[in-house]
């Protein structure tokens, strides 16, 4: 099970991506990450809420309470315009980073 610092640096982007697709709540996001990565990456839930807190403070996402399920209200997150722009920015940044790191990670056996 991978849980490296490299991925930690991109948690914001990972979570933004999932919220851009549709409004989601915390547990759903942690399940979704696990499913999409074939159980290779598991996010610590405590970390997840710290990221929500950070993203909400930066106004990249906002939240609302959904209908009652299992006796309690789920807290859903949705993306803001700023969040979308930030995510697009991150994609460009990632493309550039990938190229640079690959220069040093490929071609030597």
């Amino acid at each position: 099970m991978l849980s490296s610092d490299t991925i930690r640096g991109h948690l914001d982007s990972i979570i933004l991506r999932l919220i851009i697709e549709k409004d989601r709540y915390g547990y759903e996001i942690s399940k979704e990450i696990l499913a999409r990565t074939d159980n290779k990456f598991k996010i610590k839930e405590a970390t997840l809420y710290a990221v929500f807190q950070r993203l909400e403070k930066k106004e990249l996402i906002k939240s609302y309470h959904g209908d009652v399920t299992h006796g309690r209200k789920r807290k859903y997150y949705y993306i803001t315009t700023l969040g979308r722009a930030y995510y697009r920015e991150k994609i460009i940044e990632w493309e550039a980073t990938k190229k640079i790191i690959n220069i040093f990670m490929e071609g030597l056996e």
């Binding site: 915390g26 547990y27 839930e45 809420y49 399920t69 309690r72 789920r74 807290k75």
Partner: peptide, 13 residues
Amino acid sequence: SMEEEIIQNLDEK
């Protein structure tokens, strides 16, 4: 609100 959110999510899990 964060405590409530976490409790809700853990309950569901």
